[in-house]
Amino acid sequence: MATVQPVKARSAAAYALELQGVSRSFGALKALSDIDLRVASGERRAVLGANGAGKTTLFNAITGDFPPTSGRIRFFGEDVTSLPAHERIRRGLRRTYQSSQLFHGLTVLDNLFLAVRGVSRGRFSFLRPTRNDSSLEAAEEMMETVRMTHLANTSVSELAHGQQRQLEIGMALAGAPRFILFDEPAAGLASAERAELITVLDNLPEHIGYIIIEHDLDVALRVVTYCTIMHNGALFKEGRPEEIEQDPDVQRIYLGGGHG
């Protein structure tokens, strides 16, 4: 395996995300093995690899959906390894899913409202929000950001695939995130929608860092500054987009060739 070097040496607290020796097994299957990864605050990183390389499992380990079998995870310097998923989210971590995970019986506004309320006070509130409720205003602002204001009261089940992906991104951006994990956000999007996605990702505030898993290299390599390649549950290579694009080993993985 190639030696993995961090972007540049930084103090521990400067990293948004720091994984040390993270492994995850499902019975005899080792889905992640000994992952060491550091992502700086505000950095935009792509995690690439063939199907089954362990990219989504890595996201699940970071968010706490499937806690790691061994290893440590630090989020902005704080050890979050033993924290439940919702506590990590409240610390500013967000994610999207490979297939849209929305509330199909609720409206677009309801979905965004829940995304905002989930990380603010009043999750157990018995009082219906008033017109100037801060969560409601934040949800309406987010609708504008992802250009869905005209669909506010539309049920999610009535949205087209591209609109559902758009809403997924809106939910990830709701409630002042510090770091986002995008899991194949361009999957199934038309070319115009992909262009719009690139604009949204490029226009994110500088302090928001993210990791993007994306099979469409035209999208992934355009929006990130650094790439990590995974293969068989382990880190395989890291580099800048232009280096990764030209790398013969990476091309072999993507073309399905054997890796020695």
Binding site: D65, P84, H86, I89, Q101, G105, L106, L114, V119, R123
Partner: peptide, 15 residues
């Protein structure tokens, strides 16, 4: 109701 429909997603929203 959202917890009923998709508990995993609700966890990922901070609930």
């Amino acid at each position: 109701q959202a917890v009923r429909d998709n508990p995993r997603r609700m966890r990922a929203l901070g609930f």
